[in-house]
Design a protein around this nucleic acid. Structure first.
Lengths: 221, 221
DNA sequence: ATATACATGTCGAGG
DNA sequence: CCTCGACGTGTATAT
């Protein structure tokens, strides 16, 4: 990785056009061709380019191009404060706990938090309008489609599960199909739409669900 | 800004929990309290924390906390390769040009690229279920709702415009409402859903649209 | 390679 | 403050 600290001005041309006047920044040229330009403040880079890229430098002008998309970044270097390249060794992968997929797994183990007697038949069941998070049967044997959201569910989630239900209803063997959105919270428009469409909203306590599952793991280990 | 290049392992606890095993990384501690940790590859930081934060360091352990949200980042520094703080001066602001809004403007000027005889009555017309990109009338005077996508349209875009249509149909003065998604490309699921819902898909050549408008500008200037 | 959905998404506009 | 949709979204995963 090359770390270049310099005064520069930057132009980007691609999905849109941006222009950044002269200022001091930190430029990271990464091993996979990614380029990341950080200003003195802000969590996000002010300009960037994902790898792979072609980087050419001549007379204080660095030109980064991405052949796959035709995007380009042009950096006019006006003063170099520091310029160093270092070999960074890193085999680690970021491990995440609490993603939506893990939430699915917990719900498969604890379907009762959605509804008593619910049984998850299949997870991520594919349809041609998208995958159904949890394909279930309720206590009466009725088909239940559950859309799971890790964070607050918005109207789109209600539409999504309604789309799956419509698809399922095309199958003549399905006469009644219930649709549920399971989330820790619901936006007002989601509530309104759910009401209009007959989609059920089930609040789940994600925190408790994870703690519950953890406790169970502890018990069995 | 402090630039710390080191071998470290990192833990994040907040909206979820992450764990990153030992490896070499570049850590940026910015003037506004933001912290940005970059691995050797990838356009995005592998860990981060937006400012303002509280940073405490003791015995090779850096603890970053965000009082407003209770999130925390714990960095165990195992070997320091470089550690420097620099004053960066930067008054510049990023200037952007060419967002979806501009595409809307072009379409308002050239509605024929969507459909011959189409007239845009209103742009970004607000409804209870969200803003309609282009509120139009076709050659027969029929109401037409157009959702514009700068890039490939996915199923959600079809649902979006369908939602607007349903809302419009509540008005008894609207007996027929057409719904169009205008985009340079369409995902297969978008096509499937559009077919099922009777939403029309219109491919627009964004490149040509901009060139056309530019040529017109040139003529009139 | 393409298609799809997640994300500590982040960000900004409008009510 | 909340809600919503765009984003130069980037990134991983499954087909």
């Amino acid at each position: 990785m090359r770390i270049l600290v310099c005064r520069c001005s930057i132009g980007y041309a691609g999905r849109l056009t941006t222009r950044l006047a002269s200022g001091d920044r930190v430029l990271l040229f990464k091993d996979d061709g990614a380029v990341c330009i950080h200003a003195r403040a802000g969590a996000k880079p002010i300009n960037y380019m994902p790898g792979p890229t072609v980087v050419r430098e001549e007379d204080g002008v660095i030109r980064v191009t991405r052949p796959s998309s035709g995007e380009s970044l042009t950096i006019l270097v006006e003063a170099v404060y520091d310029d160093r390249s270092m070999e960074l060794e890193d085999e680690a992968r970021l491990e995440r706990e609490g993603r939506e997929l893990q939430l699915h797994e917990r719900l498969v183990r604890q379907p009762d938090v959605i509804e008593l007697g619910l049984v998850v038949v299949e997870r991520e069941r594919r349809t041609d309008v998208g995958p159904v998070d949890l394909w279930c049967r309720d206590a009466d044997g009725c088909l239940v489609l559950v859309e799971v959201k890790r964070i607050q569910a918005v109207a789109a989630a209600v539409e999504q599960v309604e789309r799956y239900r419509e698809q399922a209803l095309r199958d003549p063997s399905c006469d009644t199909v219930r649709a549920i959105v399971a989330a820790p919270d619901f936006a007002p428009q989601a509530r309104a739409l759910a009401e209009a469409r007959g989609v059920e909203l089930v609040r789940i306590d994600v925190q408790a669900l994870f703690e519950l599952a953890d406790a169970e793991l502890t018990l069995f280990s």
